[in-house]
Each structure stands twice: as structure tokens, then as C-alpha cells.
Design a protein around this nucleic acid. Sequence first.
DNA 1: TTGTATGCGTTATCAG
DNA 2: CTGATAACGCATACAA
Lengths: 330, 330
Amino acid sequence: MSKRATAREVAEQAGVSKWTVIRAFTPGASIAESSRVKVMAVAEKLNYRPNLLARSLATNLTHQVAVLVDDFENPYKLSFLERLTLELQSEGLVAVLININEHFDHVHALLNADQRQLDAVIMCGTAFRTEMLQDVRLDGAAPIFVLARDSQIPGVPAINCDTTLAIKDLCRHLHGKGYRRPGFMAGPKTLSTALGRRRAFKAFWKAQGIAEMPELAAHHYSAASGAEAVRRYLNEVPPAGRIDVLLCENDVLAFGAMDVIRSEFGLKVPADIAVAGFDNTLFAAAPAYDLTTYEQPVEAMVKATVAMILGREPKKTVILPGRLVVRGSA
Amino acid sequence: MSKRATAREVAEQAGVSKWTVIRAFTPGASIAESSRVKVMAVAEKLNYRPNLLARSLATNLTHQVAVLVDDFENPYKLSFLERLTLELQSEGLVAVLININEHFDHVHALLNADQRQLDAVIMCGTAFRTEMLQDVRLDGAAPIFVLARDSQIPGVPAINCDTTLAIKDLCRHLHGKGYRRPGFMAGPKTLSTALGRRRAFKAFWKAQGIAEMPELAAHHYSAASGAEAVRRYLNEVPPAGRIDVLLCENDVLAFGAMDVIRSEFGLKVPADIAVAGFDNTLFAAAPAYDLTTYEQPVEAMVKATVAMILGREPKKTVILPGRLVVRGSA
DNA sequence: TTGTATGCGTTATCAG
DNA sequence: CTGATAACGCATACAA
């Protein structure tokens, strides 16, 4: 039942001042080896370890980083969280995971992070309105980073995959495969716009002299919404006038789309309609989907983010190239 | 560029003592309405908000809870994280997400949580050796809770789904469907044992007078390992002697198994081999898998955990019933 | 190398 | 209701 020992208690038992105890636990502090050993022995006995809370109060560094997430339906988020926590922890930082939802929005989260003196805030692919950040006065607060999404906010760097390049790579592949009647499935309007994938898609095909590009609108970034969108389309448009390839804004939408195309309409992928996604989610590789998609450079993005947080790199928007993953679906 | 204002600064500008400022921000503190208004005005102007770090140091409460996770390959974890963060945040707590891996093990995480004075530690389905906890001396430290797994450690309550009931429900369904040659796919030995699913499985079929139950061993809880295990089995055992139903320890293994059964061996699910899983992952509902599985009562489990953390419920192991989800795969 | 004084921004407690 | 004093556990600067 030995309660947490404090530096003062250790000092008493070791017969030194508490500052000497602190020094023993401060790497690079000037302290005699003899007293260091003595202190450490007593510390071990009393089960003493420095109180990081008190340290944070004194140093103004919590070594904690807020990670804001709002879409838990996308398994892809899990990869991001894994890499992010891994990278943070390897640098002595930890992630405070904040669930952004109707009851707890960005402003709420930002204020909270501020009050807890967190060292940085990473908005991990969260959907936010640019105006939102201007409402909040966070002058002395932690720097904010936008991960896996663009940021138009001055002073708030984004670390993102090169969307233009990515969509171009994807579309070039589809075009090379001979598809000429492309369709695009987007998520909710505002969020979709922020991703910029639709724009790049239209630009590519227009450059190829193809003007007609049906758009299927999904209400959420979920398989169910993807399914619903494609169901609506297939019910409305007779076979002759249909698209021959569908690029979905992300894998989750693509999964839902493929499910409906095959199970409900008895069509073949890619023979009748080819499908491609974005993210290279774990399941994209499963034979059941075998989805052609695009992989974001998660590790590089995460490393770049953490480097900026640590001040090893200047804070500025970074765009990194990803990787086209060709599989059987398109 | 207004730096973070402190209570003292606000006090000076408002012409009161800093304690009055604190009172203005302390719900239920006795303070004159007039001075409260005065303080709030200045606080607003100076952009003051209480420093939770300092508060934590004084109160010994951080309102932060460590959430340990070690398996980021299972999309199911995402549901847990979503519900957990949601519930914690609705109670004024936040989750510190800790990635348990080779470089950062449970002991490391526990010590870290201790030093950061976290209020509690939730081991969210992590694989640990019982001895491990005894090595760590964490007497005055935060209470530990084991979520979605059993705990044999005295004083460390587990919040889990009723495995025995769950497996019995699943198996009864399979038996009712007429399957008589059951097989079980387990994950890594030690982790699997901790889950207790295999044991319940064997018990059920033995009670039905069926003794032979092939076991397929997966090395990890991943689709690839599930695929590999079933591939090995199907290559070794000729069609005549094969199982007619395979219960996998979790959905992810089941997905991998189904992939191989159908794509590599051209067999039908459930006609040739039926498959069932455990967890009711998002993808289990997809037509591509249409997996019969068992759903853990995530929300109830999470609520029970948080209730104990807040001291609203006594700390003790809780076993909750889940829900059988019957689909087309078995 | 070691000890001392002071500060970090709160909370708790008591006197007025 | 308000101000003052001590305490939370450590860091920083300085003196010995």
C-alpha cells in the first residue's frame, strides 16, 4: 500500500536535499555519481518516480498531443491511429484521443486541449468548416495540424497526400484500361469538396475530351450510403446508358457500391461496371473485393507531422505522394 | 498574440484577489454576483480559462484515462474506441490512447500512466500475461480495468461479454442448422486461452456427443493468418473428411477463412463449409461475407466500465450478455 | 557538486 | 463574501 513517494520523502531518507533527488532523475544534470546511486537506491525502495504533472506545470510541456477523429466508420482511421501513436510514443509523446461529434465539436475540443496545456493538436481527417477555427481565440495555445486533409487556414499546416497526383494516377490507369464512361461517387458535399478528389477527377476526364461524368452522391462516408447511392443510380439509369467505371471517394463507399452492384443487380465487377476506391483499407486486398485503390503514404505523413510538432521541421503544409494499388476491380 | 492569461492577471485588472477569480470559475462557490460579472468580463477580455494542469496537480485528478490497445488490425477495435471515447467525454473524461507493442509494453504503459497521474487504466482487449501485472508495483496508482477480456488478477475487474453463453448460442444455432462436423479456428495459443472461446466450443459439442473437433491454428488475429490456417487445413484434409462448419475466434479470422474457401478452393459457403465469426464487425453485414457472428454488448460494457471509474458502481468483474447475429454464412 | 529561494497556476482552509 | 496562507511536486537560477 506504499503511496506514491515524493522527491522530498526520498531526499529525507537519502540524507540529501530534494533538489539532488530531482537531479538524479534529470538526464544530463550535474550530480556526483555517489549521491546519484544513493538517491536511486532509496527511490527504488520507496517506489518513487517523478510526477510528470508537476513537471508539466513547471515546464509548460505536457508531451501530450490531442488527436481529433470524427469518422469511426472507416477502418482506415485505425491505421492512422496505429502509426500515429507509434510515432508519437517513440518520441516520448502520447496521444489524447478526442471523439468529435454533435455533442463535442472542434471548438469544444480545442478549448479543452488548450486548458489541458496539450503540446499540439492533430485533426486527423476530421471534417470542419474553415470559419470554425477563426471563431476560436487560441493565441497562446497549442499549434494545430491538419492531417489527411487540406487546410486553407493561414498558420495551420496540412499534411496530406497529393490528391491531384493520386487521382491522376488512378484515372490514367482506368483510362488505360479502356474505360470511357466514368462516374464519381462523392460523400457529403462540403466534406467532399475539402478532399478535392472530385475536382481532380473532373479535370482529368475533361482533358481526355470526356464531358459527361455522372455523380453519385453518398450521404455519409459509410458502406451503407455508398450502397444506397449506387442502388439509386442503377435503378434510374437503364443498362445502355450506364457508366463503365465508378471511382469512389474512398474504399468504404466502394465496398458498399460493389456489394449492391453484384448482389442486388447481379452485375459483374469489373466486366459490367469497374470500381475503384481510395485509401487501400485492409479489406481492399481481400479477394471478396480485390479493390483497385490508392494508398496514402501514412507513415511518411505521420512522421512529417510529428517532426513538425517536435520542431525538427518548420511548420508548413506538406504534400506527399502515395501509391497506386492495382487489383482486379478496375 | 495575447498569451494565456492567468488568474492573477485577471485579478489585477478586475481589482480583486486571484482567489475571487478562481471562485468565479468554480461552480457553486460563494461569490457576489457583482464581482462574478466583473471577473467574467475581464476574463473574457483577457481570454482567460482555468489551467487544468494546475488544477490536476492540486486535486490529484487529471480526468484522463489511459486506454491500452494492441491490436489495430481488427476494425472492431474502432467501435470500442468510438463508444469508449464518447462515454468518457460525456462524463468529462478523455482517453489517452496507448499503443502497446514490442517497444512499448504494458509495464511501460502502466508506469507512464502512473507518472502522468491518470485516473484509470483500461486495457482494451489487450493480450497480457497475468504475471506481468504482478511485476509492476503500482500501489498508489490508478485502478486498472480489463475490457473485453477476462482477468484473473485479484483487484483488477474485468468487463466482458458472457463468452460461455455466447459460444453456446452460436453453437446451438449451428447444431440446429444440422451441422455435425464442427471445426474451430483459434488465434495465438496464449491469447486464445484468455478468451475462453475455444473451451466453451469444445464443451458444447462434447455435450452433443461429438468428440472430434479439428482445430485450425492462426498465428495472429489477422485475415491473412486466418486465410493461411484454412489453406493449410484444406490442403491436408481430403473433401470427404472435412468439417462442415468452422467457427472462428473472431470475424477477422473468419473473413480470411471465407476468402480462401471460396476463391482458392472454389467451395461454397455455407453449402460446402459454413463459417461463423465473433464480434459482428462492420464488414460482417456486407453481402460479400454475410457472416453469422456474435455481437458483444459494446455500449453496455463501456458504460459499466466508466461507471466503475467514476465510482458510481463498485469495482468488480461484470459479465454481460451479447447478441447472436444470424446471417447467411452459417 | 550541492543547497537555497522562487515560481508554475491552481485548490483547500481559515480568518476576517 | 473576500483575502490570505499553505500546499501540490517539480524546474530554474543562483549562491555556497
